[in-house]
């Protein structure tokens, strides 16, 4: 069995309201120099599946290619 970590984020240019709010909140707390905050999803998968299969899972269900990018990190055997 293999273990994967999937990060799903909005595509470049798509407004991320929670990220923008967190960015403003950090500025309000006095943190200077925070240029950008993006909030996405983190998904852990343990499966008898190769990388190609996990990519297909992302394309079909876990991410929406119209608005989101995804990055798969292979964590090795679970």
């Amino acid at each position: 069995m293999a273990r994967y970590e999937v990060y799903v984020t909005y595509k470049q240019g798509i407004f991320d309201p929670p990220g923008a709010t967190a960015e403003r909140a950090l500025a309000n707390l006095g943190y200077e120099g925070v240029h950008s905050v993006k909030i996405g999803k983190y998904i852990q998968i343990e499966a008898d599946a190769d990388l190609a299969a996990v990519r297909e899972m992302c394309e079909r269900l876990l991410a929406n290619p119209v608005i989101e990018d995804y990055r798969i990190v292979t964590e090795g055997e679970a």
């Binding site: 798509i14 407004f15 309201p17 929670p18 709010t21 929406n64 119209v66 608005i67």
Partner: peptide, 11 residues
């Protein structure tokens, strides 16, 4: 239908 529905900008 094409496109997607995102979170309201005003949250």
């Amino acid at each position: 239908l094409p496109g997607a529905l995102l979170r309201n900008t005003g949250l």
